[in-house]
Every structure is written in structure tokens, then in C-alpha cells.
Amino acid sequence: MIAIIDYRAGNLKSVKKAFDFLGVDSKVVASPDELIDVDKLVLPGVGAFGAALEKLHQLNFFQFVQQWIQQDKPFLGICLGMQLLMEGSAESPGAHGLGFIQGKCLRFDRGKVPQIGWNQIIIKGKSNLLHGIEDRTYFYFLHSYFVQPDDESCISATAEYGVNYPAILKQGNVYAVQFHPEKSSDAGLKLLKNWIEKC
């Protein structure tokens, strides 16, 4: 069973609807108590870094998620859910992220911010998540901050928006995407299907 963590941050239902569309069982969970029969975890999210962390703590998800990813269990972070893997963010100085990946999130300092729209990913390395997805495929991005890992070996794809920044991170079974696969039409559905079946 796939669980989508509901920490009251934006449009979580789209991810659920995408899984429904793909014919895969999933559930939106509002408390760690509901995660007993779960083998894959999605951390979606839009909104601010600090506010999201507060919610994760409030709902007792923070520790659960931290342990989950440290145990290398199947995980997909989407957008803010990717940024939360980092230690911190320029968006919310002083807020401590999950700290699974060393480094922080920075704000775009060129072009219009937020970046809103379809951008191409540049694939850096082979990954099951990208099975059948070509280099320079467009995905839908919507963000003002991007992750900057200290160790770049976890970057499996980048995108360009004034700077080259990570579009996909992979460390073991922990995957994270800066774009919204649930809003990226056929390419996004393909990526979600890959994650369900191959990751």
C-alpha cells in the first residue's frame, strides 16, 4: 500500500488522483497511526519550508519520516517534499529539515520567481524512475527555491532556470523530484508508474 502524507500543505489530492488513474491502491494519511500496512511513502507538498516542518512535527510525522528514509524504505518526495530532505532552506532560516541529504535550499536569483511552467530535465545517470523517459523531457515545475546538496552524487537529473539545479535526487530507495509528476501529463504519469513498479 502506498501512503500519501497529508500535513495540510496544499493540493495532496492530485497525487492520490494520479494513483487512482493508474489503477494503484493508495491512501492519504493524516496520522502516523495509519501507516502500519504501508510499504511506499509519498511526501508531497507546496507552501513554505518552515510551516511544513511545523506541521510535520505537530502531526507526529517528522520522526516517522526521518526513520523511514534512514531505513532506506521506498520514498518519493515531491516539490517541497524534496526540499524537506535537506538540512535547511533560505526560505525559513533556523528551521531544521529532515537532514537526510546534506545541503540546503536556495532561492532563484535570476528570472521571474516563482518558476512556473514546463521545463526540461537533463538526465545525469540511469535510474529506474526514469525508465522509458527521454533526456530533455518536459515536466511541470512550480517553485521559488531549489536544493543544493553538498555531495552531488545523489543528483540524477538537473534543470536550468538561470542556474543548473537538481530536478531529481536519488539516494538508495529514496527518490525526490522538484517538479510535479502528478501535473506533468503523460510524462508525469509514466514517472509515477515507474516509481510504483520499479523503485
Partner: peptide, 8 residues
């Protein structure tokens, strides 16, 4: 619409 069409 959002159950069938996966764009923003």
C-alpha cells in the same frame, strides 16, 4: 476534471 486530466 482533476481526476482525468493531469495538468495544472
Amino acid at each position: 476534471v482533476s481526476s482525468e486530466v493531469f495538468i495544472p
